[in-house]
């Protein structure tokens, strides 16, 4: 299984060939609470690392989901529009947000691996 990398803003990306599967971490969904709405990007759109690529809303607040890498959106998980609660149930599995075809795989090196991310989350308290 491919390695999962994380951003400090709690998005993950898991590489599958040239395409990265992007979502929000288990920790992020715990902090958000019950997810009630997800807004996904159009496929074909190009994003740069750090761009606002999607929106996730809990009962109380809206949060941006940032692109962890630059590239083209090749697929969005429309299942989440019908069933946003999936983000709470299986954030790092079935509840992926989008697939991005990476324009520069080197960007992955700037992200944290699972151990580093766990440590980062712990420091967040």
């Amino acid at each position: 299984m491919a390695e999962t990398k994380y951003m400090e803003s709690h998005e993950y990306i898991r590489l599958d060939g040239d395409v990265g599967v992007v979502g929000i971490s288990k920790y992020a969904q715990e902090q958000l609470g019950d997810v009630v709405f997800v807004e996904l990007p159009e496929t074909g759109k190009t994003v740069s690392k750090g761009d606002e690529a999607a929106v996730v809303e809990s009962v109380k607040a809206a949060s941006e989901v940032y692109a962890p890498v630059s590239g083209e959106i090749v697929e969005a998980n429309s299942e989440l529009e019908a069933n946003p609660g999936l983000v709470n149930e299986d954030p790092e599995g079935k509840a992926w947000f989008m697939k991005i075809k990476l324009s520069d795989k080197g960007e992955l090196d700037t992200l944290m691996d699972a151990d580093a991310y766990d440590k980062f989350v712990e420091e967040q308290g």
């Binding site: 609470g33 019950d34 009630v36 809990s58 009962v59 109380k60």
Partner: peptide, 11 residues
Amino acid sequence: VQYPLGVLKEH
């Protein structure tokens, strides 16, 4: 602001 049940279920 919420208990372990969560805002949605509490509501």
